[in-house]
Structures are given as structure tokens and as C-alpha cells.
Amino acid sequence: MTASTLLAPQAKIAYEGAMTAIVVEGLSKRFGKITAVAGISFTVARGQTVALLGANGAGKTTTLAMLLGLISPSAGRIEILGHDMARARFAALARMNFASPYVALPARLSVAENLRVYGHLYGVADLSRRIRTLADELHLGDLLDRPAGTLSSGQKARLSLAKALINRPEVLLLDEPTASLDPDTADRTRSWLSAYRAASGCTLLLASHNMAEVERLSDEALILRRGEIVARGSPAALRARYGRETLEGVFLDVARAAG
């Protein structure tokens, strides 16, 4: 018997709401005649890591953009940390953050200046200490005065992650977090994300093409095809269902089934 089943109906709704970080119901996005996302629904419990998988054009980026408020849905509802994104997205955005190698930070600003800008934007208390802590944890201490544009790919990825963690987000959205990183740096980044989630209880939603990364980090994977969720489950459950040894095999089965 779970705690939820012991509660009265109203308390049960509040309890489940408090335990759920992301609720997506019937989410659709059409651009003219093209349907990018076709009525998907899913929930992500607090502290869980969920991966969005899919071939190019499957709807991952559009889904992430709708969760972040960058794109307004054609239909459906998004609730993050109890906030309806159609009505109160700024309240949710203050408690979330986002990292992507495809969205840069100002190249001429130093690492410290970039973190200071985003620390102010997110209203971080005791910002100098927070920057020092993140710099220590992500090995950016010697780079704080360097312009962001002069950093290597791995250093930029660490800066992007530091920016994404500046406000101690309760929900962190990651788009291809290790794309363009060498295997060593990518491995360190995954280890760090794993440790951070365990320590902070942060909810992670990541879009990735790297199946090994998804297997290592995710509790659950959602596989999208043509804007619809066509498979979902833990990496182990998906492997068992499709009779494959790796998630990559599952992904190829699902992607090629599309014809």
C-alpha cells in the first residue's frame, strides 16, 4: 500500500500533484498543415529522469520547446511543478532550467559574467558563493575570467551546465547534453549529472540520440515517431519487450517500423 492510497480524495490529488514534476496531457503542435506533435501525454515524477527519443523530426525539440514556453501548443495542457504553463509559465520557469549545446552563451562575456547574468535573472541568493561552488564542482575555477568564446567544447558544455544549475532547478531540461563532446568529457558529464540528480532530487528530462547515455541516465524512455509516443518504459523493459540487447536496437526497430 502506498502513501497515496491511504489519503482522502482531495488530499490524494494534492499528494500526487506534489509528487509529479511534469504533467503533459493531449499535447499537440501543428505548423500549418504539418503536425509536429500529435496529442502526446505523459507524466514525470519528481526526481525521475525521463528521456525523449526519436529520429530527426520526431517531435522531441518541439516538445521540449513547448515545455519551456518557447512554443505555444496548438492543443493540450502542460503543468510543471504545479504551474499551468499557459497561465503561469514564469512561476514555473523560475524553478526550472535548460541546457543545450545548440543555444550559446554570450561569447565575449567571461565565464563569471555569464553566470552572474543568469544568477540575477533567476534571482539566486548569495550569487558569488553559488558561482564559486559551481565553478569548483564543474572544474571551472581557473576559467572564471576567460571569455566564454575562447573555451573548448568540453569547457563550454561545463559552462552551459553551470548556467543550467545556477538556480538549483527542480526540473532540468537537457537537449543533447553531450553532443559534440569527446567520449571522456561526455562520460564525465553523465557521471556528474547522475551524481547531481542523486544529491539534489532534481527531475531531468533529456532529449538525446545517444542510446548509451539514455540507458545510463534514464528511469524511463519515451520514443517518439512522427509526433506520437510509440513506445515507453524503462530501458530494461523496452529491451525485453522488443527482444533486443541494447536500447539502440529497440530504437532502430521502432524507427524502421515507420517505413
Binding site: L70, L93, V103, L105, P106, A107, L121, Y122
Partner: peptide
């Protein structure tokens, strides 16, 4: 335009900045 040139708008628009 500086925000567009530095490809920084994506971060600004997903922050709590109104």
C-alpha cells in the same frame, strides 16, 4: 540584435524574464 548574434535569446526566453 546582440542577443541574436550571440545566440543567447533561447536562454533568455526560457528564463523568468518577462
Amino acid at each position: 540584435l546582440e542577443e541574436i548574434w550571440s545566440r543567447n535569446l533561447g536562454h533568455l526566453f526560457v528564463s523568468p524574464l518577462r
